[in-house]
Design a protein around this nucleic acid. Structure first.
Lengths: 312, 312
DNA sequence: GTTCCGCATGAATCGATAG
DNA sequence: ACTATCGATTCATGCGGAA
């Protein structure tokens, strides 16, 4: 049964070279229940997700708009009202997530008036009251954090990755994120450099046969709950909030190929790109038209790269 | 004015080779306001601290008994009652801490029933209601964390170091914990980039290049709020809750020589040892007689080492 | 092809100044 | 008094061009 998709037209403010202009935008207000994935949907996550059925998503990975930041794009939620703003979204997330699924929230509290604000830990307590299990808290260690000096604190080099589930028994594929043994914190999670690989190979080849087997058998270890990743700071037009390796790690850990990954605040599309590259289905939702364009461009770039790879 | 110190005698259970025996113990119940430091006091922190005056401590660093663990030594506080257990101590800490002082709490929530328990974040909220400022949360990354494998989580490689203060303007000596810079600086020292120059333009108007010179000649950088320390794996009879480098880092950062460091749950004395080595005054309190003995032995070892050093 | 080097760029935060 | 804006501070990384 295929429903005819409905659209509404709305006008949105978009930044141009000279300022801000209004542009017409077609917004999907319905979906085809099963064929509506693998797209960046323009709209508010609350209304977009309302069209989706229960239990259709395997992983929700997102970095919601931080309190009082990105004012131009999200209106800057005040820290004191952050929890009440977030809860309706969390309820929708709970509904669309499969019982075996996971919800990973990348977030960090701001300093307000010289103090760490409490909206994140209050959010944890509120989510538990809504039925979520606070299964784990991973730490993303930002190796290249923002510089600066202040009399009362150092540079902030970490963010929380809060792992919530609906059940104590959720899907987890630990082998997918095993890392080379030894100094695993120095290993690049993004890609092993060629030199690293060559060094490893030469080490293996120089050994005797029986030793190779021992060494190969011990090549990988399970990681810990601390992730060491640098933020990407290349010459992109958009500053990605997090590096692609961050969603990629959780996607590999918590889904298998073909599963559905949702990012309800997808921004420039990093989560969707990571999911697509890992052959997962995805759904990205973004309320800001400018970011929707950017995310779709980034997705199409992936398509080109994959096409090139398949040609080679 | 010197008060005569008062003692009370109590009998305590102590482990011997063959079991548990009762031993007589002299407990100080008064202090000399300034001469009562540099000791490991046997007793309950609540009653011991009650004898101390207001605003006599510069830093409180402690790792309190974890919820539901170390049952034999601390009675295993139940997670659901952890906050109410902790608050009376925190009130005493607040009283004895100087307005410019800091309270650093090394703590990590246990997993209970497959979920992270919320007593730590509830404690943060409760402490704020009692007047504490939640100034910062440092992460202690345990580079060699405890091994193990579970179906739903990885090894836990980090703990919180919650930094509370009484005032927004507290004492902090950041230069004391600076770390060597990365190699990237060699390229930076040769020539300043255009962007650096542009960024410095505004500075030129006021102060001119003296700041630049400072910066170029610098070999060290300020650290971040993520501490990378390995847990000590020495063959001690007692497994210290944290390595000596952890209290040492905060002692260097938050006190100057001669200041007073308090650890109200001093355990095997690691905080006191670190303070003494750094020429700070200290006060260690411990309710378990066995640990008191161990802490005093560890302190006396330091005395020997320092004596040897002064002879050399 | 590698390696080296230059360099922009950050989900930052504080304190002073302006409205 | 209370909020908005702005300048100052600072450093690890990836990218691209050069050797």
């Amino acid at each position: 049964m295929i429903k005819k998709r409905k659209y509404s037209t709305r006008y949105v403010e978009v930044r141009s070279k000279t300022g801000y202009v209004w542009r017409e935008e077609r917004v999907s207000t319905s979906n085809d229940n099963g064929t509506s994935f693998d797209q960046i949907v323009y709209g508010d996550a609350l209304t977009v997700l309302a069209e989706y059925p229960d239990s259709c998503v395997d992983l929700i990975f997102t970095s919601p708009p931080y309190a009082d930041s990105r004012k131009r794009t999200y209106g800057g939620i005040h820290p004191d009202r952050y929890v009440e703003w977030m809860l309706p979204f969390a309820d929708q997330f709970y509904r669309v997530l499969k019982p075996s699924g996971s919800f990973v929230l990348n977030i960090k509290e701001k300093t307000v008036d010289g103090e760490r604000h409490t909206y994140v830990i209050e959010l944890i307590l509120a989510l538990r009251k809504r039925g979520w299990l606070w299964t784990e808290e991973y730490i993303w260690h930002k190796k290249n954090c923002y510089p600066g000096k202040w009399p009362n604190r150092f540079r902030d080099a970490w963010e929380r990755c809060l792992h919530f589930t609906k059940s104590k028994h959720f899907s987890m594929y630990q082998e997918a994120v095993m890392v080379p043994m030894g100094d695993w914190r120095h290993a690049r999670l993004r890609t092993l450099s060629d030199t690293d690989r060559k060094r490893d190979e030469s080490r293996v080849l120089s050994g005797f046969g029986k030793k190779i087997e021992n060494w190969v058998g011990r090549q990988k270890a399970y990681p810990t709950n601390v992730l060491h990743l640098a933020t990407e700071c290349g010459n992109k037009q958009h500053s990605a909030a997090f590096p692609e390796a961050l969603p990629a790690w959780f996607i590999k850990l918590l889904t298998k190929p073909g599963d559905v990954v949702l990012d309800p605040f997808v921004g420039s599309g990093t989560t969707a790109v990571a999911a697509a590259k890992l052959h997962r289905s995805f759904l990205g939702i973004e309320i800001n038209a400018e970011f929707v364009d950017l995310a779709r461009r980034n997705m199409s770039l992936i398509g080109n790269i994959q096409a090139e790879l398949s040609l080679a």
